[in-house]
């Protein structure tokens, strides 16, 4: 299993991604500088990491979406390859139009870092297949722009096609505005494209995979990817 982690100026979760995929999962994980024009051969998963690419200039992710490596990430996605974008990675995938919507400033106007609970809405994806539908898991968030927004009509379409993968919830799995940390529409924490191979999410599963660091709530996603690749 080969994973490519694009690194932009200002990325700061690239090492979390490399640790989770490389050290913890034992996958062949390669950092790829944003100026490169090709992903490593036989890349199966592209992990677009979090951070503040290009200092969040213009809009979060807007400049990174135009980086040379992103053309090959799009090609990879178009040919059915898996792409996972976390936090700033999610913002980049939206700006690159690989995913619908946009991430606005948090409703509170504050940068939020805390543990959240997520409910699994889709457990049939390569990213979630080892999880149960409706299951709840705990992962950290750390962002100032995580307020997911979409045109009302497009939001209806997104929900109707099952595009929502994770929703913020209570520890027991209850949904409601009280459990949404950032004001995201419908409590949306993560979405997937129509084809099911490009997933973006604000929370950080890659920061919750190592018992030594205190939590392992994010492991389910990596076990899912492991299963998906074992079958491929």
């Amino acid at each position: 299993m080969r994973v490519a982690v694009p690194v932009f100026p200002g990325s700061n979760c690239d090492h979390d991604a490399l640790h989770a995929c490389g050290t913890i999962m034992g996958w062949d994980t390669i950092p790829v500088w944003h100026q490169e024009t090709r992903l490593p051969e036989n890349t199966e998963l592209v992990f677009v990491p979090g951070g503040f690419s290009y200092g969040d200039y213009l809009r979060c992710g807007a400049i990174a979406a135009l980086a040379p490596i992103m053309a090959d990430v799009k090609r990879h996605a178009d040919s059915g390859g898996l792409v996972l974008g976390v936090c700033n990675g999610f913002q980049i995938l939206c700006e690159a139009q690989l995913l619908p919507g946009a991430l606005l400033r948090n409703e509170s106007l504050r940068f939020i870092h805390s543990e959240v609970h997520l409910r699994v809405e889709r457990a049939d994806l390569p990213f979630t297949r080892a999880m149960k539908p409706g299951a709840v898991f705990q992962v950290p968030i750390a962002h100032a722009e995580g307020n997911f927004t979409l045109d009302p009509t497009d939001l209806v379409d997104l929900e109707a096609r099952g595009g929502v993968v994770f929703r913020y919830c209570s520890p027991k799995g209850e949904i409601g505005a009280d459990h949404v940390p950032n004001g995201a529409m419908n409590g949306i924490a993560g979405i997937v494209n129509v084809r099911g191979n490009v997933l973006g999410m604000m929370p950080h599963p890659e920061r919750a995979v190592d018992p030594k660091l205190g939590s392992t709530g994010g492991l389910g996603m990596f076990q899912s990817l492991l299963e998906a690749f074992a079958r491929a």
Partner: peptide, 8 residues
């Protein structure tokens, strides 16, 4: 192309 995100 760049300056405006039509979603918002």
């Amino acid at each position: 192309k760049l300056l405006v995100n039509p979603v918002m």
